[in-house]
Design a protein around this nucleic acid. Sequence first.
DNA 1: TAAGTATACAACGTATGCGTTAAATTAACC
DNA 2: GGTTAATTTAACGCATACGTTGTATACTTA
Lengths: 236, 236
Amino acid sequence: MTDNTLSTVLKQYREEVAHASLTRQAYTAILKAIRELYLQPGHSFLEREIADLLAMSRTPVHEALIRLEAAGWGTVIPRRGFQVAPIQAQTITEIAQISATLEGLATALVTSQLTDQQLTQLETLITQQDAAMQAQDLRRYVQIDQQFHSQLVAPTPNHRLGILIGSYADQLYRARLYAIDDRTLPVQSLQEHRAIIAAIRSRNAQAAQELMVGHRHRGSQEMVQIIRHKETPTGK
Amino acid sequence: MTDNTLSTVLKQYREEVAHASLTRQAYTAILKAIRELYLQPGHSFLEREIADLLAMSRTPVHEALIRLEAAGWGTVIPRRGFQVAPIQAQTITEIAQISATLEGLATALVTSQLTDQQLTQLETLITQQDAAMQAQDLRRYVQIDQQFHSQLVAPTPNHRLGILIGSYADQLYRARLYAIDDRTLPVQSLQEHRAIIAAIRSRNAQAAQELMVGHRHRGSQEMVQIIRHKETPTGK
DNA sequence: TAAGTATACAACGTATGCGTTAAATTAACC
DNA sequence: GGTTAATTTAACGCATACGTTGTATACTTA
């Protein structure tokens, strides 16, 4: 029954944290499997199934599922198993809204922190992103996009903020992966990146913040449209 | 030895969710005990102690502690017990910053949502807060303040945002309780509340948002000062 | 007496076991 | 044949048990 590929993937993810506790191994492996869509949105599975796949007892899996639920990756339904959080327009809209605001805050905070060297590094990423777009390599484009936002926000003195943004980024990453096939090439996104860097270079925190919020807002709009379209299928 | 009062309090909190699972009972009881400072910041306790106090086995307590750690209420340290998160200026600053921004977003979102009736209700709360201030009843003042912010943000269409703000409010509530004795009476806070309501009445979302962020920012500043002062005690 | 080592203890991570209860399947009745 | 009731099954919550490991205490030695 359980997908053969899933078993392989879980084991692979697990090895990456083989030194940690079994609970953490299970948590990491399952989270990545959900994020990478190996465990499909809306699908359910039983504790026992995953425990068998990971060759451990139910206990650490049970604890991992509790944490996954707390992190918003699904729901524990007592005798129905763990249901992986479905990807719904409403959900993604809410998350994107929160994330955009938080990233705006982080942008404002790092405006005075980012060194010229770091800014140059970010501009290099924009150039690479441009190249990826020219080459129609959407997957690579998205990958560099992640890197850009991650590096931009990294120097924030607010440690909790960084972690929080990261957790939302994971959620949005999954949604992006889910909607990637139907996505058009983002042309103005690159311009917005350049504008943000420009605002930071002139050390205008408020402008940088507003640009970031708008950038994230527009970026998610398109994704939500695609998800909403998938929710109400024309055929089938 | 375990505090006698703690035992009573835990049992009381537990009864409030007596229908739920033991894990949830433990989670709720311990969280409230931390929030209300019955479990002191920085102190550690063992799984076994709490399990005995709650008259349950270690298992549900263990699971509750995992969730509490995920929610930022403490740290599980393998053979040292669960350490209740200390109240530090840095931590509170970070949380307050995030919370202020999120509440600003929520304020902007509800500006078009709040009915005249709800606004009138909020103004009533301001009046009551004024009365509490006149009567030097600081505890009551803080209580109404909580209510004001809670009711203001409640109609947000972003459900996750509401929950997130609520969890941060719990953390800040604890810090406020911790710093309450040394706190001076807030005079301008009331004026700021009035200004926020005025901005909402004129349906100016951006103004309302900025006023809220500023309001929360200033409010936390004072609290952080007190905490910082407690961190580096002059006497003792 | 102080420092280092060995031993004892206990707390937690994990496994296993049990009872409850919800879901599913079958049987009975309309 | 369809609907309801009874019975079976199994998944999960929780308790218990065990092994590992870190910490503390005691003992030895300099």
